[in-house]
């Protein structure tokens, strides 16, 4: 690892394809959080981590995309993603893809060791305890499955959210239960996915918080899509937007201002 001349950690932002395409504001929030934390942030050319291919059984495509990401991101000290799911793909599954290839296994392992989910990177690696932000709302937090079970992300975002002025965290029942997204599962098994997200929505509504935060855009899109279809006013956002104080953009599935101003 080559530290930058001024000693700042050189962090490559793996913005994730969903954030790149659908909600760049999450990417800019992550960027701000990393820069505020004293990192020099880079955005290498990127597409997709390959997880949809990997989880659909297309190992060849997953490998091709993994090689591409490893090539593009290996030069930095750290690789950070505002997604537990994509970070887990890079950190936990890339090495397995090349385990039978001695020419690449070492590189894949080395790369995997640099990868972190955003909240985990800020707290576990950089030791950040608090952010300077204000959000005068009650919020609840959904633990996305991959981040939770593959990377152990649960306390880290809550710790940072606790430092946000005005924010009150109310835990919902079964916050660690899947929302039913599961990538292509949500389309291939739409009826089952719907039943699962209905239960999640029930838990969200029962906890009474008007805002739901999570660390994965896929889950957020699923929950927001269901709540919007139900006509619910509950807002869904990535926790990075709140931590960075960047909550001007309409919530996920919400129309642009002035309709959202209540």
């Amino acid at each position: 690892m080559t530290p930058s001349p001024d000693g700042k950690p050189r962090v490559a932002l793996f913005v994730t394809c969903l954030v790149d395409l659908f909600r760049p504001s999450i990417g800019f929030a992550a960027l701000k959080l990393l820069e505020d934390a004293g990192c020099e942030v880079f955005v290498p050319s990127q597409t997709c981590c390959g997880q949809p291919a990997y989880n659909s059984g297309d190992r060849a495509l997953a490998k091709a995309l993994a090689r591409q990401a490893i090539d593009a991101f290996s030069a930095y000290d750290y690789v950070v993603a505002p997604s537990g799911s994509c970070a887990a793909m890079l950190a936990k599954h890339y090495p397995g893809l090349f385990a039978d290839n001695p020419n690449l296994a070492g590189r894949a392992n080395q790369f995997a060791g640099k990868v972190h989910e955003l909240a985990s990177f800020l707290t576990d690696v950089l030791g950040i305890e608090a952010v300077a932000a204000r959000f005068d709302r009650r919020v609840t937090f959904h633990d996305s499955c991959s981040g939770l079970r593959e990377l152990g992300v649960a306390a880290q975002p809550r710790k940072l959210l606790a430092s946000v002025d005005g924010l009150e965290l109310v835990e919902m029942e079964e916050c660690e239960t899947c929302c039913g997204f599961g990538g292509t599962f949500a389309v291939k098994f739409g009826e089952i996915s719907t039943a699962i997200v209905e239960r999640k929505v029930e838990n969200i509504e029962n906890c009474g918080a008007p805002v739901v935060l999570a660390g994965d855009l896929g889950c957020l899109m699923n929950m927001a899509g269901k709540l919007a279809r139900n006509g619910s006013p509950i807002e869904l956002r990535h926790f990075a937007e709140v931590l960075a104080g960047m909550t001007d953009a309409p919530a996920i599935c919400a129309a642009a201002a002035p309709q959202t101003k209540r």
Binding site: G27, V43, M221
Partner: peptide, 21 residues
């Protein structure tokens, strides 16, 4: 349809992150 039969799908914000970057 597997998604939109029961759920809305969020519209993207506009320019991609990489384009804005």
């Amino acid at each position: 349809n597997g998604w939109t039969a029961t759920r809305d799908f969020p519209a993207p914000q506009g320019d991609t992150f990489q384009a804005q970057w």
